[in-house]
């Protein structure tokens, strides 16, 4: 019985490791910054969660620390990716050529004087795409 529980935990750890690998693969394959943030920082969140849960199933007496670690990863990870995406849009990194719509470049991110330059370039990009 104990053996079966340990094997279940190991399989969950393996699934988490595969998700981490897929996240890194997406980081290499995706065409622009925003899609890299999508696959990079969120597939890896589930991967880390599942890996830690599997370790916690194998060693049942570590569950408290594992739970605290999972909560910290879950809370801190979206904030970092949100701030990174906002900063990337603020310094004017364009979306990839395959993008369908950009509702945000019409409105400047922050009202700073230098911002006009950036919006002009992104509007040029849009007209080029059209």
């Amino acid at each position: 019985m104990n053996e079966i529980i340990e094997i279940i935990g190991a399989v969950i750890t393996l699934i988490g490791a595969i998700f981490l690998f897929l996240g890194a693969l997406g980081l290499v394959r995706m065409p622009d910054v925003y899609n890299r943030i999508q696959t990079g920082t969120k597939a890896t969140t589930l991967g880390t969660m599942l890996t830690l849960v599997g370790i916690g199933i194998i060693h049942l007496d570590w569950y408290g620390k594992i739970l605290v670690l999972i909560v910290f990863v879950l809370v801190s990870n979206p904030i970092s990716s949100h701030v990174l995406a906002g900063a990337a849009h603020y310094i004017g990194i364009p979306l990839s050529k395959r993008s369908v719509v950009d509702k945000m470049s019409k409105k400047p991110v922050l009202t700073v004087k230098k911002q006009t330059n950036i919006t002009e370039t992104s509007e040029k990009e849009e007209t080029k795409q059209n």
């Binding site: 981490l20 980081l27 943030i37 990716s81």
Partner: peptide, 18 residues
């Protein structure tokens, strides 16, 4: 770009926790 390097560093820290 530099943002790509920052994202890679972020992913590196997350996977190092696992």
């Amino acid at each position: 770009t530099s943002v790509d390097r920052i994202i890679a560093l972020d992913v590196l820290t997350i996977s190092s926790i696992a």
